[in-house]
Lab assay of single mutants.
Amino acid sequence: GPREVTMKKGDILTLLNSTNKDWWKVEVNDRQGFVPAAYVKKLDSGTGKELVLALYDYQ
């Protein structure tokens, strides 16, 4: 199956793709996968990378 990404509340993840309104593709610890968009919030990183903050645990 697809590689699952797990996250804990407060984690910072790299946002790869947010074109789908329900599932965003993120990368964390060299793993890529989809997380519910409602579970993360975009951060203003000030760099080229888009980052998101995990609002809830997800696994």
Rank of each mutant, 00 (worst) to 15 (best):
36 P>T: 04
2 P>C: 15
35 V>F: 02
47 T>G: 14
41 K>I: 14
14 T>F: 10
57 D>G: 05
13 L>Y: 06
2 P>M: 14
37 A>K: 05
14 T>I: 15
55 L>H: 01
52 V>W: 05
54 A>G: 03
48 G>R: 06
24 W>Y: 07
50 E>P: 11
31 R>T: 14
2 P>N: 13
41 K>F: 06
12 I>C: 05
49 K>C: 09
55 L>T: 04
36 P>L: 06
54 A>W: 03
49 K>N: 10
40 V>P: 03
41 K>L: 10
33 G>Y: 15
29 N>S: 08
53 L>G: 02
4 E>P: 15
16 L>H: 03
46 G>L: 12
23 W>Q: 02
51 L>C: 07
23 W>N: 01
2 P>W: 14
37 A>Y: 02
21 K>E: 09
50 E>Q: 14
38 A>D: 13
18 S>M: 09
12 I>N: 01
45 S>Q: 10
35 V>S: 01
37 A>T: 04
37 A>N: 03
33 G>H: 08
9 K>Q: 07
11 D>K: 02
16 L>A: 02
40 V>K: 00
42 K>V: 11
12 I>R: 03
7 M>I: 10
22 D>V: 12
1 G>A: 12
10 G>M: 02
29 N>A: 09
30 D>W: 05
46 G>W: 09
28 V>Y: 13
23 W>F: 06
24 W>C: 04
26 V>S: 00
15 L>E: 00
18 S>H: 08
46 G>V: 13
27 E>Y: 06
56 Y>L: 10
50 E>D: 12
52 V>A: 08
10 G>F: 03
55 L>Q: 04
57 D>R: 02
16 L>Y: 03
3 R>I: 13
16 L>S: 02
22 D>I: 13
55 L>S: 01
41 K>W: 06
38 A>G: 11
22 D>C: 15
29 N>E: 10
53 L>M: 14
56 Y>C: 14
59 Q>N: 14
39 Y>Q: 05
54 A>K: 00
16 L>W: 02
1 G>Y: 13
31 R>N: 09
49 K>H: 11
12 I>Y: 05
32 Q>L: 07
43 L>C: 10
39 Y>W: 07
34 F>Y: 14
19 T>D: 14
41 K>A: 09
47 T>M: 11
48 G>F: 08
50 E>Y: 08
34 F>C: 14
21 K>G: 07
48 G>V: 08
24 W>H: 02
17 N>T: 06
30 D>F: 08
6 T>L: 09
51 L>R: 08
17 N>E: 15
6 T>V: 14
7 M>A: 01
37 A>S: 13
53 L>S: 04
1 G>H: 13
3 R>W: 15
36 P>G: 03
21 K>N: 10
31 R>K: 13
20 N>L: 07
43 L>I: 15
45 S>E: 09
24 W>G: 00
5 V>D: 02
51 L>F: 09
48 G>L: 08
44 D>Y: 11
44 D>V: 11
25 K>M: 15
30 D>G: 15
4 E>L: 15
34 F>E: 04
27 E>A: 10
24 W>L: 04
56 Y>H: 11
21 K>V: 08
52 V>M: 03
57 D>N: 07
52 V>C: 09
20 N>R: 08
41 K>H: 08
1 G>I: 13
38 A>Q: 11
56 Y>F: 13
3 R>C: 15
2 P>D: 11
45 S>A: 11
27 E>S: 09
27 E>N: 05
38 A>N: 12
24 W>R: 00
5 V>R: 02
31 R>V: 15
59 Q>V: 14
15 L>T: 01
51 L>W: 08
22 D>L: 13
15 L>H: 00
44 D>E: 14
5 V>N: 03
43 L>H: 03
34 F>P: 02
32 Q>D: 06
32 Q>V: 15
29 N>C: 08
10 G>H: 03
12 I>P: 01
59 Q>W: 10
23 W>D: 00
27 E>V: 09
48 G>C: 06
24 W>N: 00
10 G>E: 02
36 P>V: 05
20 N>V: 04
4 E>R: 15
6 T>D: 08
15 L>C: 04
39 Y>M: 14
36 P>Q: 03
35 V>D: 02
42 K>S: 06
5 V>L: 15
47 T>H: 13
22 D>T: 12
24 W>P: 00
7 M>P: 00
23 W>L: 04
14 T>S: 07
23 W>S: 02
3 R>G: 14
32 Q>A: 11
12 I>Q: 04
22 D>R: 11
29 N>H: 10
27 E>R: 07
17 N>M: 07
58 Y>D: 00
9 K>S: 06
11 D>R: 01
15 L>A: 01
23 W>T: 01
16 L>D: 00
5 V>S: 03
19 T>A: 10
33 G>W: 13
40 V>T: 02
28 V>W: 11
22 D>E: 09
26 V>M: 01
52 V>E: 00
45 S>F: 11
35 V>Q: 01
31 R>Y: 10
21 K>P: 14
1 G>R: 13
44 D>N: 11
25 K>W: 15
44 D>T: 12
41 K>M: 14
58 Y>V: 02
33 G>R: 05
13 L>T: 01
59 Q>E: 13
58 Y>A: 02
42 K>Y: 08
57 D>W: 04
58 Y>G: 01
47 T>W: 09
37 A>C: 05
39 Y>F: 13
58 Y>K: 01
14 T>H: 09
14 T>Q: 09
45 S>Y: 11
15 L>W: 01
59 Q>K: 10
19 T>N: 12
40 V>W: 02
47 T>A: 12
52 V>L: 08
18 S>I: 06
26 V>N: 00
35 V>L: 03
15 L>M: 02
4 E>F: 15
59 Q>L: 10
55 L>W: 02
6 T>F: 15
5 V>F: 15
21 K>A: 12
39 Y>G: 06
44 D>W: 10
18 S>F: 05
21 K>D: 09
33 G>K: 04
36 P>M: 04
27 E>F: 06
10 G>V: 01
49 K>Q: 12
15 L>I: 04
16 L>T: 04
46 G>H: 13
58 Y>P: 02
19 T>I: 08
53 L>C: 07
39 Y>L: 14
3 R>A: 12
56 Y>P: 00
29 N>W: 06
17 N>C: 13
10 G>L: 02
24 W>I: 04
54 A>Q: 01
3 R>V: 14
2 P>R: 14
57 D>Y: 05
9 K>M: 07
33 G>S: 07
1 G>E: 12
34 F>N: 03
57 D>C: 05
8 K>T: 07
20 N>F: 06
12 I>G: 00
20 N>G: 08
31 R>D: 06
8 K>W: 06
58 Y>S: 01
42 K>P: 08
14 T>V: 15
11 D>V: 03
36 P>N: 04
19 T>R: 10
12 I>H: 04
7 M>H: 01
17 N>Q: 10
30 D>A: 09
1 G>P: 13
48 G>T: 10
56 Y>Q: 13
54 A>Y: 02
24 W>D: 00
13 L>M: 10
3 R>K: 11
57 D>A: 06
23 W>H: 02
34 F>K: 03
9 K>D: 02
39 Y>N: 06
55 L>K: 04
41 K>C: 14
25 K>C: 15
13 L>A: 07
33 G>D: 05
47 T>E: 13
8 K>N: 07
56 Y>R: 15
54 A>R: 00
25 K>L: 15
56 Y>T: 10
52 V>K: 00
20 N>P: 03
11 D>C: 06
35 V>K: 00
18 S>G: 08
44 D>L: 11
8 K>D: 03
25 K>V: 15
13 L>G: 07
26 V>Y: 00
36 P>E: 03
3 R>M: 15
20 N>E: 06
24 W>E: 01
41 K>R: 10
10 G>A: 03
2 P>I: 14
50 E>F: 10
14 T>P: 08
26 V>A: 01
39 Y>C: 15
46 G>M: 11
28 V>K: 13
6 T>R: 11
20 N>I: 05
53 L>T: 06
46 G>S: 12
45 S>D: 13
9 K>W: 04
26 V>W: 01
26 V>G: 00
27 E>L: 10
32 Q>C: 12
20 N>W: 06
30 D>H: 10
45 S>C: 15
51 L>E: 08
55 L>I: 08
33 G>Q: 06
11 D>S: 05
9 K>N: 04
24 W>K: 01
36 P>Y: 04
22 D>G: 07
25 K>I: 15
28 V>A: 12
49 K>P: 15
8 K>R: 11
31 R>P: 01
